[in-house]
Design a protein around this nucleic acid. Structure first.
Length: 491
RNA sequence: GUCCCCAUCGUCUAGCCAGGUCCAGGACACCGGCCUUUCACGCCGGCAGCAGGGGUUCAAAUCCCCUUGGGGACGCCA
């Protein structure tokens, strides 16, 4: 019988979910979904200073927003400290680990000296060579750490990484690393391995920064007599300067919640993220959730790091242009009913949501979204660039004012005239309104564009938008007439 | 200093494992055109890349070596 796949996402709570973490979570989730396995969420909170309620909530909220579901957890690493310590004792008893009495200061000095002389910085094994008696004496008065005893013979640790292939490290290049602090607290390398063993993790899918920890963890698995899971390391996400993205350096720009706040559709963002460092043989780009689960495979993960192309200080793109284009794609391609709740949330936030939009005006509301969405990139566009559709209180863009109004002072008279004519229309249709406007232009011997652009500015506040006659019908006779009538105030 | 990983258009990438069908395909961005009252959408077209050098081979983006460049790890952080 085939073993069920169990994967985990094990973030340390450092404030919020950033895109690197989100990507790791997504890949684990996808793999679990694809294989019918399960995903465990485990918070590695052993660093008490960083692990606040708030930062844990940040991670959970981020995952929920993205739509990443997990089957077990969240578990907390601190709950299992006794297990970690029991494992450490087992390692000590079985001779796989030993007590080290070197003080922090001594070690730091040695490390600094080694670095200075450009020598190897590995632990020199002082305490590994202690006799039983020496240990007994020191034990009584000196606090000690526990170190893994890396085999001293010729040989190596090697494993098949699912994405990087065979990775081999010689024993002699691995130092005797600490697994328990002198205050008795277990360290990450140990805790993580013990937790993965307990949770019966079959595949460790994590960032490539874990690649150089892997051989040490395998040593722990082996010493504990536990089966070694499969490892799949994913390439990292870098910034345009090829530096690892970090909260410190990039702040909000790399936080998942930033994208929520800036009008991203969660699935569009997932779709974008999964494309950073992963591809199908056809380089397919747009996937529904079901399609992505079907198409996903660990083999598609690329080995080379990818760049999250945030263009700081680029007025045109507040984040990676590809992310925006994918979001815009979804915004105009999804069934309007599906973007409705997101737009509603924006309107509510802006205080211009009309409850009738879900009742009597629902049809109008959906038609409006359909009408304007093709030129929007993010859902927040609906409340700024699209404000005039939902509220009578909207700003007039200065560029539009200049180009379409100020240039033609006579519009001060023409627009109200148009209001009268439009008001007189019995059937307020695209054909009728177009007729009226074109006829009037003819009589005045001006280009229809002068009137049309003037109307556009006064009615929508914008320089550009959907076909004017469609807009007129959408806004409605009464509101159009009103807006045209009050236009002389602009002159 | 040691160890590990990586290298195709500006960016995300396909192709590499099983060398020929690749004077390298797609997407975003950019530029031009069509459509049009405007701006988008859409459609059409364009710009742009195998890091460098050696091999192996009839043939190399693909295999090997070196160089260079980049990333990661080397903590009583996770």
């Amino acid at each position: 019988m085939k073993q069920e796949v169990i994967v985990r996402f094990a973030p340390s709570p450092t404030g919020y979910l950033h895109i690197g973490g989100a990507r790791t979570a997504i890949f684990n989730w996808l793999f679990a979904q694809k294989t019918g396995g399960k995903l465990i969420l485990r918070i590695e909170d052993t660093d008490a200073e960083r692990s606040t309620e708030e930062s844990i909530k940040g991670i959970v909220d981020g995952m929920k927003w993205l739509g990443i579901t997990w089957d077990e957890g969240p578990y907390f690493q601190t709950q299992f400290i006794n297990e970690h310590l029991a494992a450490a004792k087992k390692l000590l008893d079985s001779g796989h680990a030993y007590k080290c009495f070197c003080s922090k200061e001594e070690l730091e000095d040695k490390r600094a000296a080694a670095l200075k002389h450009k020598k190897d910085v590995k632990y020199d094994g002082t305490c590994r060579r202690l006799t039983r008696i020496e240990i007994a004496i020191k034990e009584a008065k000196i606090p000690y750490t526990l170190r893994m005893k890396v085999p001293s013979e010729e040989g190596s640790v090697s494993f098949e990484d699912v994405v990087y292939g065979t990775i081999e490290n010689k024993y002699k290049d691995i130092e005797d690393f600490v697994i328990v602090r002198s205050n008795g607290q277990p360290l990450y390398l140990l805790s993580n391995a013990v937790d993965d063993i307990r949770d019966r993790i079959t595949h460790v899918i994590r960032g490539q920064d874990g690649l150089s920890n892997t051989h040490r963890q395998i040593l722990i698995y082996q010493a504990l007599g536990a089966p070694v899971p499969k490892f799949a390391h994913m390439s990292l996400t870098l910034d345009p300067k090829k530096a690892k993205i970090s909260k410190r350096k990039h702040g909000e720009l790399v936080a998942v919640h930033f994208y929520k706040a800036h009008g991203f559709l969660p699935w569009a963002f997932v779709n974008f993220l999964v494309l950073l460092g992963w591809a199908t043989p056809e380089s397919r780009e747009i996937f529904s959730k079901e399609e992505l689960m079907e198409a996903f495979s660990l083999q598609g993960i690329s080995r080379a790091n990818s760049i999250f192309n945030v263009k700081k200080d680029d007025p045109k793109y507040f984040t990676d242009p590809k992310a925006i284009s994918i979001n815009a794609h979804y915004l105009r391609e999804m069934p309007v009913e599906e973007i409705e709740p997101y737009v509603r949330a924006e309107l509510e936030k802006a205080g211009i949501w009309d409850p009738e939009y879900e009742n009597a005006k629902r049809q109008w509301f959906l038609e409006t979204l359909e009408l304007i969405r093709s030129r929007f990139h993010v859902t927040t566009d609906f409340v700024d660039r699209g404000r005039a559709y939902f509220s009578d209180d909207f700003p007039i863009e200065s560029r539009a004012l200049k180009k379409n109004i100020s240039k033609h002072p006579q519009l001060e008279k023409w627009l109200p005239m148009l209001a009268d004519r439009l008001e007189g229309l019995e059937r307020f249709t695209t054909a009728e309104t177009e007729n009226v406007i074109r006829e009037m232009a003819e009589t005045l011997e001006i280009k229809p564009g002068v009137l049309i652009n003037g109307i556009r500015t006064v009615v929508t506040g914008q320089l550009a938008g959907p076909g004017m006659f469609d807009v007129l019908i959408n806004i409605g006779q009464r509101r159009v007439v009103e807006r045209l009538r009050r236009s002389p105030a602009l002159f």
